[in-house]
Nucleic acid binder design. Structure first.
Lengths: 197, 197
DNA sequence: ACAATAACGAAACGATACGTTGTGTTGCAC
DNA sequence: GTGCAACACAACGTATCGTTTCGTTATTGT
């Protein structure tokens, strides 16, 4: 029996959820630097030890809070590679926007850009998202919608990069509707795969 | 006479340079969070007051250190819009790479992604870079190399986004030569402006 | 030469936060 | 009931921010 029956009092899963939610809320308002674990504990109504028992350091706590609301999403498979790539890009945007406040600021997303947080997110999330992009394009190639000569990684990274850039460094004053954004993705995808329209 | 002749002992400009260089070095190794102004002072051999007299807070100090090595660059003007956009993208990459260490990590660039740093960099640098991109494309339109129907902002942001994404979130294991990277930019630019080759 | 001004190094300060440790209590499995 | 581990609470050592004070030094104007 290599079974691992847990001994002793189990974790309070509801407390876990409340902590992660409180972390997200504070990241949004104050950012990584000014996030205080002591404030989280008092807000949630628990001891600091309950937090440190789960996540040994602040970066790991923050990474957990980010991953907790990041959805890998389902692999789009409409039969059309353009639709699939647009949907894929849209999923990225939704993940970023989930943590956006009313003014367009995104403290949670910014918290990801930390030497100790990036490796965790990258390993458990970004790589999986990238693999989904590759799969979408591979199916497009099989259907003859995409040339295999194209640089597939470039297509995926370009789409992700645009979303990242516009969400972080360019707090654009322009208000765009969801339809406008989707149309932009669609036109970009068509350019990238050389679709003649 | 509204002349402002400075009174008293002037700033030591050499000290200013040494502080900013030390800040960059520490950001590279430890990141924003673990950068210590006290360590900077002792390393440079000055008092903390000399630093706080110049930059009132840590984010402003960090922003100054980043801007100090960021070059706006000259507006490319080769007569060919593709060459100009490739050069523009290359300048972005060079700005990012200037602070890369031997392992490809980039603590200085990551330090930019901070609620209190981004606005400073964005206002005094990103907007100017974006304007240069617009000018390049405007000249291309005038020469008849680019259709005015295209979304010019999209072209600029897509190029910048790719560089940002690959420099931060995707610590790519693949080693690419400068020539490969330039060829990638070239092919992407051609896709974006609909250049038939 | 001398006065006014402000940067300089050094040191101490209060406040805040990380992460650890110890105490006694509570919940769950055997 | 016994063992185990999570729980709240409190105290602790260390580190850092940003401020303040002090005596000193460099520069300008009279």
């Amino acid at each position: 029996m290599t079974e691992n029956t847990p001994k002793g009092r189990p974790f309070d899963t509801d407390l876990t959820k409340r902590v992660l939610a409180a972390v997200r809320s504070q990241l949004e308002d104050y950012g990584f630097v000014n996030l205080s674990i002591e404030k989280i504990a008092s807000e949630v109504g628990c001891g600091k030890t309950a937090i440190y028992r789960r996540w040994p350091t602040k970066p790991e706590l923050v990474a957990a809070a980010i991953l907790d609301t990041s959805e890998i999403g389902d692999l789009p498979d409409t039969g059309d590679v353009v639709d699939d790539l647009v949907e894929h890009a849209w999923q990225n945007l939704e993940n970023f926007r989930r943590s956006e406040d009313e003014t367009g600021n995104n403290g949670l997303l910014l918290a990801m850009f930390n030497m100790d947080v990036i490796p965790i997110i990258s390993e458990s999330f970004m790589q999986a998202r990238h693999a989904m992009g590759r799969e979408i394009i591979a199916r497009g190639v099989k259907r003859g919608q995409v040339s295999s000569d194209l640089d597939h990684d470039l297509i995926i990274d370009t789409l992700a990069g645009l979303t990242l850039f516009r969400t972080t460094l360019k707090p654009d004053t322009r208000v765009r509707t969801d339809d406008e954004i989707k149309a932009t993705y669609r036109s970009l995808v068509r350019s990238l795969i050389g679709d003649p329209r």
